[in-house]
Design a protein around this nucleic acid. Structure first.
Length: 285
DNA sequence: ATGGCCCGTAGAACGGGA
């Protein structure tokens, strides 16, 4: 009797740019996609205003760290698939920060870290220095988290376009905020912890981006940046079978300026079964 | 050719986003 094939686990990240405005879209999205872990950024809601009941009705338990007007992060867990969350933290332990930019929890043995990196505003500004400091603090904290958890996923709005191919016009953006060398070094520092950029584990279409300016018909003209990412520890990278940007969210009426990124994880047995099934299909064509 | 947004907090513009 073959072992039952476990369904894939889907992890997603989406900067909603106000959860109050985007809640109907989020609920519709959750209804049509099977995503098990959903990381949200820029909820812009104090905790008492978080739509816990609506999301519970939609099948998700909520963990969040919010504030009025700015920032705010959340992790939603699909209750039909995932049990209770452990070891929830709502800030970087080493950083005394009023800005709500991080939440982490453990579910099914996976350490899920949801991050909203500072934007930085402009290179050389106070906000830029804060951004670099924040990234450095995150990196140090993740180093210790990885010692305790070999299954770790870092998802969120990194506000960093790692390479030229992640930018619609690399010359225009060269050295600018989101693309400067120190920011990109920060991104590489995260990879140096052993994390992999899930999106780049696979062949991807050219001009794949996750953010487009609301102005200048940027979305239609494919003038975007890839700044939202899913980074996976080696143990999870091995299980990753797909990573995609969901641009449908950006096509809708009154969209967030960000698209979602979704990664699929399968256990080895399931992956082997999947590969075998694909071969059978291929043989038929 | 140029510039054109959106959100929250306001209760009119403005700061922030990226």
């Amino acid at each position: 009797m073959p072992e039952a094939v476990q369904a894939p686990l889907r992890l997603a990240t989406w900067n909603v740019n106000s959860l109050k405005v985007r809640l109907p879209q989020l609920l519709a999205w959750l209804n049509t996609r099977t995503v098990d872990v959903v990381c949200l950024q820029e909820t812009k809601l104090p905790d008492q205003s978080f739509p816990t009941q609506e999301l519970l009705d939609a099948g998700y338990q909520c963990h969040f760290a919010g504030q009025k007007t700015y920032n705010g992060v959340a992790i939603l867990l699909r209750t039909a698939r995932l049990g209770a969350a452990d070891a929830v933290v709502t800030s970087l332990p080493e950083l005394d920060d009023v800005q709500k930019r991080l939440i982490a929890l453990t579910t099914e043995g996976i350490r899920v870290v949801c991050a909203y990196f500072p934007n930085g505003q402009s290179v050389g500004s106070d906000k830029y220095r804060y951004k670099l400091q924040w990234i450095s603090t995150l990196t140090q904290w993740l180093r210790s988290e990885l010692e305790k958890n070999d299954q770790l996923a870092l998802l969120g709005d990194f506000n960093i376009a790692p390479e030229a191919r992640d930018v619609h016009d690399p010359l225009l953006w060269e050295g600018q905020i989101l693309c400067s060398d120190p920011e990109r070094e920060g991104f590489r520092g995260l990879l140096a912890l052993g994390l992999s950029d899930a999106f780049r584990l696979f062949e991807q279409p050219e001009r794949s981006y996750t953010w487009w300016d609301y102005q200048n018909l940027a979305f239609r003209r494919k003038m975007g940046l890839r700044i939202d990412h899913i980074l996976l520890s080696p143990a999870l990278s091995k299980m990753c079978t797909a990573c995609e940007i969901d641009v449908e969210l950006r096509r809708q009426e009154r969209p967030s300026d960000h698209a979602a990124v979704v990664a699929t994880l399968m256990h080895r047995e399931a992956k082997a079964h999947h590969a075998a099934t694909s071969k059978v299909h291929a043989a038929h064509h």
